[in-house]
């Protein structure tokens, strides 16, 4: 691979790295009653190059370069208040179907109940039946 090509690839990857900062990788901590949850986002950097033809190095090369970045949630770190040591920290993976159930049962309910507190109760069945008379 020519030196020019290597330099171009490096420039592309450097630019993408500049765009994707540490802030984008670690989400804002969410504090709920007994724990602090920190979302972790995965950063995907992909660079592709293509083309070229034989020739003297330092002369010319052909083809194209492309780069792309993606950010997606990969894990949740739960820090339990008042629980010292490693016991106080849990990591929930957001990848893979087997752990989804674990997250749903342990983290999402407390989160959503925290942020969507509903104090009301559904109407009793007898009232629902009365409304059906209308």
């Amino acid at each position: 691979m020519s030196q020019k090509m290597i330099e171009s690839l490096r420039a592309v990857t450097d630019e993408i790295k500049k765009m994707l900062t540490v802030k984008a990788a670690v989400g804002e901590p969410i504090e709920i009653e007994d724990k602090v949850l920190i979302p972790i986002f995965g950063i995907g950097v992909g660079v592709g190059g293509g083309g070229g033809f034989p020739g003297k190095e330092e002369e010319s090369w052909g083809g194209g370069l492309g780069g792309g970045g993606g950010v997606s949630p990969i894990a949740l770190i739960a820090v339990f208040k008042g629980v010292p040591g490693p016991e106080g920290v849990k990591i929930y993976s957001l990848k893979g179907p087997s752990t989804i159930a674990q997250i749903i049962s342990q983290v999402v309910p407390s989160l959503l109940e925290k942020f969507m507190p509903s104090k009301g109760k559904p109407l009793p069945e007898e009232k629902k039946e009365k409304l059906k008379e209308i």
């Binding site: 309910p109 959503l112 969507m116 009301g120």
Partner: peptide, 11 residues
């Protein structure tokens, strides 16, 4: 959760 919230909120 949205479904449950809607029901408990609106009845």
């Amino acid at each position: 959760f949205v479904t449950r919230d809607f029901e408990s909120g609106t009845g």
